[in-house]
């Protein structure tokens, strides 16, 4: 790991966009041969909606992974956020802002807990966020059987369904979040410090970086992103959904999108642009499967294979680079 971390801190926008273009081209061809159309308005809109939800989570996940950490609790944070938002709003537009703010505050609180457990108590990130995830699962399982609350109608209309041409507002929200995260990484002291901590925590500490504070901040931002995804999903679904996060496999899919986007799982290298590419790639595969009417369970098998294969490809590349 230390040998890898001595490599260049950043790479150019990764080859994920090439993979995206190839996938879409092949998918388009296969769908067309079957007599369907991949590029009609409905497919594009649903593709971008899928990308918006996953993308928001993945942008946050990118930050913690760059810092050498990881967040497995995001799926439960997403579910919890939908419930907090929808139950606070309770179907009225006047409670829209408090609902959104409360959902984000609760999410940030969970991020703070994750960050403190990892940075201050030095618990392995995988275990800490797994433990926090299980705590949230216990809370959700024992308090909710099904959908609860009602999202403000105006939020449903705007964030949930409004779009400009084929581009949903939610996808624009993702782009804003991604650009903000990108600027934070490349233009601010926090970003430089985060990459330094992810590259080599000891070296960063010796150069005067406050590792704990940087990591905790990254975790708060990561959970905020997951909370934002929850608000979007509450707007999309019209109510809070206690299992929407786990059913969407947001934990594993967000990590997969980050890794496919060229960010090293060990931290220190990568960026948000690649992650958005990874998200678009996963969403396109999803759209192509839908067009081909692949059985949803078979789709899950293929997803599992793709995730493992993608990580394996990047792992091999890292080994080669590390040796050369």
């Amino acid at each position: 790991m230390s040998a890898q971390s001595l490599l260049a801190a950043r790479r150019p926008v990764p080859g994920v966009y090439l993979a995206l273009v190839l996938t879409v081209a092949i998918g388009w061809l296969v769908v067309m041969l079957r007599g369907g159309a991949l590029f009609n308005q409905a497919t594009m809109v649903s593709l971008l909606h899928v990308a918006a939800g996953l993308g928001l989570v993945a942008v946050g996940q990118t930050l913690v992974i760059l810092g050498g950490s990881l967040d497995l609790s995001v799926a439960y944070v997403v579910s919890l956020s939908t419930l907090v938002a929808a139950e606070t709003m309770n179907g009225s537009d006047t409670a829209l802002v408090p609902g959104v703010l409360l959902a984000l505050a609760v999410s940030a609180g969970i991020g703070l807990l994750n960050g403190l457990l990892i940075a201050r108590f030095r618990i392995n990130a995988f275990i800490a966020t797994l433990g926090v995830g299980l705590l949230l699962k216990g809370y959700l399982d024992s308090n909710y059987d099904g959908p609860a609350g009602a999202t403000s109608p105006s939020l449903v209309q705007s964030l949930g369904y409004q779009r400009i041409g084929p581009v949903p507002v939610s996808f624009l929200l993702l782009l804003v979040a991604a650009v903000a995260a990108g600027l934070a990484l490349n233009r601010t002291r926090f970003g430089h410090h985060l990459l330094a901590v992810g590259g080599d925590a000891e070296v960063a500490r010796l150069s005067g970086v406050r590792n704990q504070r940087v990591l905790v901040t990254a975790h708060v931002l990561c959970s905020l992103c997951a909370g934002l995804a929850g608000v979007y999903l509450a707007a999309r679904l019209g109510s809070g959904a206690p299992r929407v996060g786990t059913e969407g496999i947001y934990d594993l899919e967000s990590i997969a999108a980050v890794v496919i986007g060229g960010t090293a799982l060990a931290g220190g290298r990568g960026g948000v642009a690649g992650t958005v590419g990874g998200v678009l790639l996963l969403a396109s595969i999803d759209a192509i499967f839908n067009q081909l009417e692949v059985d949803s369970f078979a789709k899950q098998v293929v997803r599992g294979v793709i995730i493992i294969a993608a990580v394996a490809v990047y792992a091999r590349r890292t080994i080669r680079k590390g040796r050369s």
Binding site: F126, I249, L252, I255, A256, V259, L265, F297, A298, K299, Q300, V301, R303, G304, V305, I307, I308, V311, A312, A315, R316, T318, I319
Partner: peptide
Amino acid sequence: LRVPSFITTLGMLLILVGA
């Protein structure tokens, strides 16, 4: 293949349940 084990086995989980 040097895939971190939690990714491998979570992927395997998806594959087994889906299959």
